[in-house]
Nucleic acid binder design. Structure first.
Lengths: 168, 168
DNA sequence: TTGGAAAATGAAATTCATTTTCATTTCCAT
DNA sequence: ATGGAAATGAAAATGAATTTCATTTTCCAA
């Protein structure tokens, strides 16, 4: 199931795209890797989407642009993108590794509908404050956190109510 | 790697054990399943531990008590325990499904060391408040959430400092 | 520019946790 | 007690993640 992503996020401008490519290729150079056509195609495809993509889903999108690019390359490139901070994994309950791009995004969290899988982003600076406070209290060097809320979205709730009324 | 669990949690008293068994067997009856020796052994073994167990780790512990119990039965029983609220999955970054028992536990979250995998429990009622507030704001029926903090624990930080000094 | 070493690619194979299948055994309501 | 439903556990299947390896591509140094 494709994880629909509801957010306030605009498609990347040409400059944003070039800036992201720059970050990626600087990273490649830094760790002694090479700049290839495939990696560029994968990066561009990834930045153009707004969903939470599994490796396979990104692979299918990439294949539309260049049918010769293999699953393995997409898999490996996604790891590279995560390394340099352009992608990050989003822990969803379907158990598959999912990524979202982090370029020019403000810090956010997800609220996930357990019925339809849709996710809504929300912004809550309090969460980061909690991370810091709790880290201090327990003598941990807190570096990051994970916060998701699960529930039922408005649409699904309406559908369920209708269904229940039908059986009465 | 076994996920060491640092908490304020005492081993179960005999009464607590009987109460948990009662919850489990009432649940079995409710959904039309049967009470078996194996299920009882698995429940007892699970309650006696304080770690975050993968199915395989619990299986190894169970096997010490009754070598004839198979992995499949442990796997299925763990799902039943999760169904009736006695177990819940803990999302750790190693990607394996891990469970902790929830009997007589107060609501808590985990802070996980990314170096050694140890986890410390912490208590923060603010998190539940945030869940509720944000659910209301976005018209979600929030039912549960997920919150973990990652970082480096005091012990590991000391080790790293020592290592770094050594190379100077 | 070009030769060649290092890296990338992608198909296929492998790994490994999870889940299902199925023949046999056990449970338990009547 | 006993018949039918469920449980068991070994083995097989599944499926995502990762590795292997033969071939191709990149790019630095001469």
């Amino acid at each position: 199931m494709l994880q629909r992503r509801i957010d306030d996020h605009a498609p990347p401008t040409r400059e944003a795209m070039r800036e992201a490519q720059d970050i990626f290729f600087k990273h490649l150079k830094r760790v002694g890797l090479k700049h290839t056509e495939q990696r560029d195609t994968i990066l561009r495809t990834f930045l153009e989407t707004r969903d939470h993509l599994s490796t396979d889903e990104l692979f299918r999108l990439v294949r539309k642009k260049d049918a010769k690019i293999g699953f393995t390359t997409v898999y490996r490139t996604l790891k590279l993108l995560a390394e340099c901070g352009l992608a990050s994994t989003v822990p969803f309950p379907d158990g598959m590794a999912r990524y979202e791009h982090q370029f020019n995004r403000r810090s956010h969290h997800h609220m996930v509908c357990t019925e339809c899988g849709a996710s809504v982003e929300f912004f809550s600076p309090e969460v980061s404050k909690l991370e810091e406070e709790i880290g201090r209290k327990y003598h941990f060097d807190a570096t990051r956190h994970n916060f998701q809320i699960y529930g039922i979205c408005e649409d699904c709730r309406k559908k369920i109510t209708k269904r229940t009324l039908g059986t009465l």
